[in-house]
Design a protein around this nucleic acid. Structure first.
Lengths: 229, 229
DNA sequence: TGGCTTGAGTGCCGCAGCGCACAGAGCTTT
DNA sequence: AAAGCTCTGTGCGCTGCGGCACTCAAGCCA
């Protein structure tokens, strides 16, 4: 499970396409760097580019009036940004922020819409993906409401681990607090507990996953549920 | 705003179609009664019928392991049940329970899929609707997390009021607690406070909306945000 | 070397909401 | 009329978390 193939990273969505349509799509794509903190989509703003993360990953966040943000979804090479174009909607439903630096393929909305017309497999994949995203939204909404900080943090670290393709990544408690929609010190306490148990270690924003299996035990069942897609 | 036309209730989604396609769709529909408590869709189960509520309304709920349910959306004559068929997915993402008795039009999934093929306007409307649902999901997830019981209850009553086309409906505190994902007694306290302020009155599950404008003030901004669609 | 910035530990107070439990009140049934 | 159920009011102790604030340590810059 934690055997990695860091050299060959690809987009699962694209890889699933028949080779002709895949090549066609790749033709319109350009590689870009995803840089931590970059905002790829802004909520209710037009989508300029569609992104297929390869090694980087992106989080979808909502903001509510004066509150801190709240993460609704995490997108790595298993997914994409801009799937709502398959609904004929050129707007992003949420803000999308790069959460782990890395690389992605991107394509302009214009071109992508054309690809959608000419590639039925692509459209099918997107629709399926949209459905998955919808179920994930409701699942994680319930999780956010009912579960406590520590299991949620564990789940979140696991999801990040899956998408980071590495055992360590840079994330401050402050940042984690925003993702989980809780106080920074709440994260500190939960993280300290997990560090004490040898599940993770961290220092100045550098987090190391030490015991993945242990983390899975510490996480709420939502992790497993969301894995199932 | 609170002027009602109780005699002529229709489905806004259907009404928006060009007359030819509308008639075609209505042809395949049959009227059914929505009876409080009926489960129209079960999560992850095949969709047999698509529903267009007219006077009744339906709530979408998720359940998490051993927890109480949690409502993720409310559907009245502004929406429909089974929109995921437009994604080519014949499964329901969440459980759908009739929350206000009334009437609806329904059509079999089979027939509906055919309609989708022959009516581009229908498909367009559904896609748009799916997008709206997605944004609502994230909005209400954040609301559930950050806002307190009383404003959430107020919002919820307003949404119900909009869909019930009546100033009173039958809902026990217990039921409301499940929708909001909180304790029953928490609802009792919030409801008592709102009754004391003359916003509502209730007795043994019969709730009356007395001061709609006041309720709107008591509700969180999420109500207005969700109104905007 | 010293000061600044950023990340993290920790503590205190307050509160919303939980779990639980019991009591009273209104409607229904026999 | 009595018994029973359902719906609501209410109280008590607990806890997870918010708000806030102060401290310390590690890296960065001059």
């Amino acid at each position: 499970m934690s055997v990695k193939a860091p050299l060959q990273i690809f987009s699962r969505l694209i890889e699933g396409l028949p080779s002709k349509q895949r090549k066609q799509l790749l033709n319109g794509c350009e590689p870009v760097d995803l840089v931590f903190g970059n905002v790829l989509h802004e909520a209710n703003q037009p989508i300029r580019h569609v992104y297929f993360p390869l090694s980087g990953f992106v989080s979808l966040v909502t903001t509510l009036d004066g509150h801190q943000p709240l993460e609704m979804g995490l997108i790595g090479n298993e997914g994409m940004l801009g799937a709502t174009l398959a609904l004929g909607i050129g707007q992003a439903p949420m803000r999308a922020v790069v959460q782990g630096s890395g690389s992605a393929l991107r394509i302009s909305s214009q071109l992508f819409k054309q690809e959608l017309l000419s590639s039925p497999a692509l459209l099918r994949a997107l629709k399926r993906y949209l459905y998955v995203v919808m179920t994930q939204l409701s699942q994680s909404a319930a999780c956010t409401h009912f579960h406590e900080i520590e299991p949620r943090l564990a789940r979140w670290l696991l999801m990040t681990h899956d998408r980071a393709h590495a055992d360590n990544f840079h994330l401050t408690h402050e940042y984690l607090a925003d993702m989980l929609g809780v106080r920074r010190s709440g994260v500190s306490i939960a993280a300290a507990a997990m560090q004490a148990r040898g599940l993770i270690s961290y220092s100045r924003g550098e987090i190391h996953i030490l015991d993945r299996a242990g983390l899975e035990l510490a996480a709420c069942e939502c992790y497993a549920a969301l894995q199932a897609d």
